[in-house]
Design a protein around this nucleic acid. Sequence first.
DNA 1: TTTACATATGAGCATTTGTTCATTTGTTTG
DNA 2: CAAACAAATGAACAAATGCTCATATGTAAA
Lengths: 118, 118
Amino acid sequence: MGKHAECCDEQCIHQELVSKVLTDLPDEDTLYDLAELFKVFGDSTRVRILFALFESELCVCDLSEALAMTQSAISHQLQLLRTNKLVKSRREGKQVYYSLADEHVVTIIAQGLNHILE
Amino acid sequence: MGKHAECCDEQCIHQELVSKVLTDLPDEDTLYDLAELFKVFGDSTRVRILFALFESELCVCDLSEALAMTQSAISHQLQLLRTNKLVKSRREGKQVYYSLADEHVVTIIAQGLNHILE
DNA sequence: TTTACATATGAGCATTTGTTCATTTGTTTG
DNA sequence: CAAACAAATGAACAAATGCTCATATGTAAA
């Protein structure tokens, strides 16, 4: 005990509280996955892509045009969004259409907006 | 038009959709702030700190002990959390107690959990 | 006022991240 | 089949990030 908290004399540590925190903390995997999920929302390019998809499904080219970014940049970000199950894709001929994977995406972004708009 | 979408021949672009997306996209500042907010949640150390504060307010030393990290590392992250108004602090003697700034924090994390737990 | 303790902070460094560029893959049309 | 187009992908590189270490600041007790 006190292994990492050599910063202070342990007399300032509230042991009961710390113990409770330790038992109630989600497991490492959950914490990691949760952080990874939010990391995906933590980039304005990806947020803009998601907002764009609020309207309707769009192909890579549409997104590229709407966000004024290269096809490659958009495509890379779409892969990341897809890996994290925030968007899904559907191929139709030469084009691939992307859309939101589920309603969680909308809810999470709405909560975020709530916070920054105070 | 088509400035950045040299990837494709514009014949694949759905102009009406793209136009609608452009008018409905939030302004740059909002998008940036939103991404910045989620970026804060996008790190497992910070997520762990927030989870710990679900229990009760804790001093830096408690957090350092609970998360098994140095006081400096915790302190740096707390500053970031404070700057983004996710936690607030209260000094009591030599110690500084941190707690969640508001309920949005809980709601946002809950939504994130919902998503990863499918 | 000196000493000790709790926290904050700046600089440095290794790692991660987002974009670009070049190329490849998949699909349709001639 | 070859040619053209839409999208995906790997490598490279600059920028951002999170931690460590050393030190500074703020507070209380001796």
